[in-house]
Each structure stands twice: as C-alpha cells, then as structure tokens.
Amino acid sequence: MDLGTVIGLVLILALLAGAMAMGVGIGAYIDIPSVLIVIGGSMGALMIAFKPIQMKKFIKVFMIAIKPPEEDVSELIKKLVAYSSKARKDGLLALEGDANNEENEFLRKGLSMAIDGSEPDTIRNLLEIDMEQTSTRHKSHSSIFSTWAGIAGAFGMIGTLIGLVAMLLNMADPSAIGPSMAVALLTTMYGAIIGNVLGAPVANILNIRNDDEMLIKEIVLTGIMSIQDGDAPRDLEAKLLAYLPPEHRESSI
C-alpha cells in the first residue's frame, strides 16, 4: 500500500471536515441537490465520455492508486543476473524450468521466446508492442480521473448557475433565498473538492504508476536481450543498475 497516497487523502478529508466542524458544523455543508448535480451529473458525463468496459474498471483503477502492484527492482535485477549466469554456464535451454515458474508474465514471455530460439529483433518487437499497448491502456484509465476533475468543476459551475437562477426568481420570498444560495455555493465547493482531491491527483499518481511499470519492463527487456546475446553477468548487472538512481545501485556480484 502506498502510504503517501493514503495519508494524503486522509489528511485532506480530516482537515476539511475539521474546518467545517469548527465553523457552522458539517451538516451545513451537506446538500442533496448539490450532490445530485455534481456527483450524479459528472458520473453521467463520464459514462458518455468513456466506454462501458472502461467505466467498469473505475474502482479497480482507483485502488491501483492506493495499492499499486509491488515489484522489488533490485531483486529483479539480481534474478536477471542469475539467469544470465545460468545461461552462460549451461545454455539458454537450462532456463526452461525457470521460465515456466516465473511469476512476472512479461519476463516469462520474453524468456520463453529466447529459449525457443526466436530472433532478437522479433523478441524486441513483440515485447515493445506489449509495453506500448500496456502503457496506452494505463493512460486511458488515468484519463478517466483527469477528465472527471474537469467535468466535476464544470458541473459545480452549472449548479451555481442553477442556484442563482432559483434565487433571482424567488427574491420576493426571503425563505427561498437561503436554499438557493446553498445550491449555488455548495455545488462549486463539491466540484472543486472532487477535481482537486480525487480527480487530478489520482490521475497524476496513476501516470507515475505507469512510468514505474514501464521502467520495470524496460529493465526486463534489456536483461532478456543481453541474456540472449550471451553478455557477461557483470556487464549485464552494470547495464541494468544504470536504470536505478545512484543511491540504489548495489552490486550483487
């Protein structure tokens, strides 16, 4: 679990709730018509903007922002170096059992093609296509939240206009001004909260998750190509460690 994301969300909600409670109370900031306009309206607009199969993954994608798949890059590099040593000593066919038991699907696919004797260009092209399509899917998912941020803000403004129209039409009735003003102001607040707490930040962290995964796949691709080329394990390790920040480059050889 990404504690930074969780702590950030909890901190924002706690501070907002605390500020409301210290003022006129949280109840004053709860308005059902405003909720229907902003949340209902923005979700409906998202259903128009994206395919149903994309919207079905809304919650799953949101959970990736909170709990991303974990991959120890240092251990991955050690594993690739170990595979390189084994292949240099006993040949590529000696990695068949390791490939069959490999949990990393991308690594398993690349190793299997290398063991089967596929041409290096073929392996690289197929794995790069896999990377490109995976990244495209991830960016499509993150765009749901960035779009939501903009749409929620727009529906906040729509709600404000609805509230102002209702207020102006009922200026003769003082009792109707308060509820109309509540809709006008709270819809803007709801739209701003959705856009700046759930929309834009989640979209950004999902893009970071995508970059992290692409880095891992790039390391795997480089490792597989080096193993197939018969590079020395020490040379392979130096090549893979170059992908990491200097403070994380620890040799295991």
Rank of each mutant, 00 (worst) to 15 (best):
I158Q: 04
I158E: 03
I158R: 06
G159R: 15
T160M: 15
T160Y: 05
L161D: 06
L161G: 12
I162L: 14
I162A: 15
G163I: 01
G163M: 03
V165N: 10
V165G: 10
L168I: 14
L168N: 08
L168W: 02
L168F: 13
L169T: 07
M171I: 15
M171K: 13
D173P: 03
P174M: 05
A176M: 11
A176R: 14
I177F: 11
P179G: 04
P179I: 09
S180E: 00
M181H: 08
A182M: 04
A182V: 08
V183Y: 03
V183M: 10
V183Q: 05
L185R: 13
L185N: 15
T187D: 11
T187E: 14
T188N: 02
G191Y: 09
I193Q: 01
I194R: 00
G195D: 01
V197E: 10
V197M: 14
L198G: 07
L198T: 03
A200V: 07
A200P: 00
P201T: 09
P201C: 05
V202D: 01
N204R: 12
L206V: 04
R209Q: 10
N210V: 04
D212C: 05
E213P: 02
E213K: 15
E213A: 13
M214F: 02
M214H: 08
L215S: 09
L215Y: 03
I216M: 10
K217D: 03
K217V: 03
K217A: 05
E218H: 01
E218S: 14
E218V: 00
I219D: 00
I219R: 05
L221A: 07
L221E: 04
L221I: 05
T222E: 15
T222V: 02
I224R: 11
M225P: 00
M225T: 07
I227E: 01
Q228P: 06
Q228T: 04
G230S: 08
D231K: 12
A232Y: 03
A232I: 00
P233V: 06
P233A: 12
R234V: 10
R234D: 12
D235V: 14
L236T: 12
L236Q: 10
